[in-house]
């Protein structure tokens, strides 16, 4: 006798879980990109500050 599970397509659950994981990880990607941008802008300013501190 075929068990119930033989009629469940494993790929279906896989697509559904991607939607959930993808949602969470998309948030992390956005956050990471934002942090990189902020640091990217801060870095030149910080290094300029360090150089001027050393010169003075």
């Amino acid at each position: 006798m075929l068990h119930d599970i033989a009629y469940i397509d494993a790929g279906t659950g896989s697509l559904f879980i991607q939607a959930i994981i993808g949602g969470v990880l998309a948030g992390i990607v956005v956050l990471r990109t934002a942090i990189r941008k902020i640091f990217g802008k801060l870095k030149p300013a910080l290094s300029r500050q360090l150089v001027s501190d050393e010169e003075s």
């Binding site: 469940i8 659950g13 939607a19 993808g22 949602g23 998309a26």
Partner: peptide, 23 residues
């Protein structure tokens, strides 16, 4: 998740953004 049966609602929410795929 592979053992779970999918509901109609879940079928409709099977969308993954490009950002999600990258993640």
């Amino acid at each position: 998740a592979q053992k779970a049966k999918e509901t109609e609602h879940q079928k409709q929410t099977r969308q993954v953004s490009e950002m999600g795929l990258t993640g």
